[in-house]
Computed example of a mutant assay.
Amino acid sequence: MRLIRLKEVKHVTGLGRSTIYKYIEDGVFPKSVSLGERAVAWVESEVMAWVMTRIEARDRHYSLAVVSQLKAA
């Protein structure tokens, strides 16, 4: 298991700091792990699973849109 810091989470997701923390608050992003009094990190596999879920949702939406267009034609 690998822990990644905020800088890498931002790089991997393309999200900003405030958006990441808002998503955590909303329960739609993996929670951070406390490393000490002023340090946190995220489990890399959890962040990557979140990214993959977003990609799969995009692909499902795209597939449904294509099927709808074909039915309308």
Rank of each mutant, 00 (worst) to 15 (best):
R54V: 13
M1T: 06
L35P: 04
W50R: 06
H61W: 13
A39E: 07
V51F: 09
E56W: 12
S63G: 12
I55Y: 09
A39T: 14
L70Y: 00
R38F: 09
A73Q: 08
K22Y: 11
A72G: 01
M52S: 10
K71Q: 05
E44A: 10
Q69K: 06
A72N: 03
E8G: 08
T13R: 06
G16K: 01
V33P: 02
E25P: 03
S32A: 13
V51H: 15
G14M: 14
A57G: 05
L35K: 04
R54Y: 00
Y21Q: 13
I20N: 00
D59L: 15
Y21D: 04
E44H: 06
L70G: 00
T53W: 01
A41R: 15
Q69A: 13
V40W: 14
R5H: 04
A73D: 05
I55S: 06
E46Q: 13
S68Y: 07
M48V: 12
G36M: 07
G36H: 06
P30I: 12
A57W: 02
S32N: 05
I24K: 03
D26E: 12
S63P: 07
S68E: 10
Y23W: 04
M52P: 01
Y62Q: 01
S45I: 01
M1G: 08
S68P: 03
M1C: 05
M48I: 11
R54G: 11
A57Q: 13
A41I: 11
A72M: 13
G16Q: 13
K10H: 09
W42H: 03
I4A: 08
S45G: 12
K22V: 05
A41V: 05
